[in-house]
C-alpha cells in the first residue's frame, strides 16, 4: 500500500539521486568504456580505433610491471592487515585495562587522508633508512614497496580491528562456556569456535582490504610518487600517469583502456573473494 501511494512521487524521491548518479557515475562510466576504443587528446577529436589501445597496453612494460606489483601488493597487504587486526582484536576483547584507550589510538590513523599519510611516513622512513645506510624510498623500489605496506597497515589495521572486535563481541559466551566445560583448549576455542563464528567479519574485512589495496592511489603518489623510474607505481597511479603525465596523442586512449582492464580486474577479484569467503560462513 505504501508502495502504491509513493510510486507517483518519484520526481521528488528518486529523480535527484538518479540524475546525480547519471552525471557522477553512469554517464562517465559508459563514455569511458567507449573512449577506451578511441584515439583522442581532447573530447572533440575522437576517432574510433577498435581494440588497438588494448593491444598497445600489452607492449607497455610499465603496465605489466605495475599490474603484478599491484596484485602482489593487494594480497600481501590484505593478509598482513587482517592477521594483525585480528590479533589486536583478540587482545582487546579479553577485558584488559585500558582497552578503550587502545582502541581509540589504533583507529586514529584511519581518519588521516592518504596524501598526508604519505608525507608522514616518507619523513619517518627516509630518516630510518638513512640512519641504517640504506637507499631512500625514492631510490629503491623494494624499500618503496615495503614502505607502502607499512603505511597501509598503519592506516587500516585500526579499521579492520573495530570490525573484528564487533564480530568477536557477538560470539555468544554460552558457546565458549559450553566448549570449556567439554574440555576444549583455548587454541581449539579460537580455531573451532571464534574464527568460524566471525566469518562474516572476515569476509567484509578481506573484501575491504583487497579492494583498498588494489585501488590505492593517494598514498602511492605522496610516499614514492612511483619512483625510482615508475618501479613503485601501482596500477591506479600508472593509469593517472598515462593520462596526465605523458605527452602524445595516443596516451589518453591507452590510459582509458588500462582503466577498463583495471576495473575488470577489481570487479573479478571482488566477486571471487566474496564467493570464496562467504561460502565458509556458518548459519547462525
Amino acid at each position: 500500500m505504501v508502495g502504491k501511494t509513493i510510486k507517483k512521487w518519484w520526481p521528488l524521491f528518486v529523480l535527484p539521486t538518479f540524475a546525480a548518479f547519471v552525471i557522477g557515475f553512469l554517464w562517465p562510466f559508459l563514455w569511458g568504456i567507449y573512449l577506451s576504443f578511441c584515439k583522442f587528446t581532447t573530447v572533440q577529436d575522437v576517432t574510433f580505433v577498435g581494440f588497438s589501445n588494448y593491444s598497445k597496453i600489452l607492449i607497455d612494460k610499465t603496465f605489466s610491471h605495475s599490474f603484478w606489483l599491484t596484485v602482489a601488493f593487494a594480497f600481501v597487504s590484505s593478509i598482513l592487515i587482517n592477521v594483525c587486526a585480528f590479533a589486536i582484536a583478540l587482545a582487546l576483547t579479553k577485558g584488559y585495562k585500558g582497552t578503550n584507550a587502545f582502541r581509540t589510538v589504533f583507529f586514529m590513523p584511519n581518519l588521516i587522508g592518504g596524501i598526508v599519510l604519505g608525507y608522514i611516513w616518507q619523513t619517518l622512513l627516509n630518516g630510518l633508512l638513512s640512519m641504517w645506510g640504506q637507499p631512500l624510498l625514492a631510490l629503491s623500489a623494494r624499500n618503496g614497496f615495503i614502505g607502502m605496506l607499512i603505511l597501509l597497515m598503519w592506516q587500516q589495521i585500526g579499521y579492520m580491528m573495530i570490525i573484528y572486535v564487533a564480530g568477536l563481541n557477538n560470539v555468544s559466551p554460552d558457546l565458549i562456556e559450553a566448549a570449556k566445560i567439554d574440555g576444549a583448549t583455548s587454541r581449539q576455542i579460537l580455531f573451532k569456535i571464534k574464527i568460524p563464528m566471525i566469518m562474516p567479519s572476515v569476509t567484509i574485512c578481506t573484501f575491504l582490504t583487497l579492494t583498498n589495496g588494489f585501488k590505492m592511489f593517494d598514498q602511492n603518489l605522496s610516499l614514492t610518487g612511483g619512483d625510482p623510474g615508475k618501479q613503485s607505481q601501482l596500477l591506479a597511479l600508472n593509469i593517472y600517469d598515462t593520462f596526465y603525465a605523458r605527452s602524445g596523442p595516443q596516451w589518453k586512449g591507452i590510459g582509458q583502456a588500462k582503466a577498463v582492464v583495471f576495473f575488470i580486474l577489481v570487479v573479478a577479484i571482488a566477486l571471487v573473494q566474496l564467493k570464496a569467503t562467504s561460502s565458509k560462513e556458518v548459519q547462525q
Partner: peptide
C-alpha cells in the same frame, strides 16, 4: 558503482 575504481571514470567525469 561502489566497486568501480575511480580511475575508470576520472577523465570523463572531469569533462562532464
Amino acid at each position: 558503482s561502489m566497486v568501480v575504481p575511480f580511475q575508470m571514470v576520472m577523465f570523463t567525469l572531469a569533462k562532464t
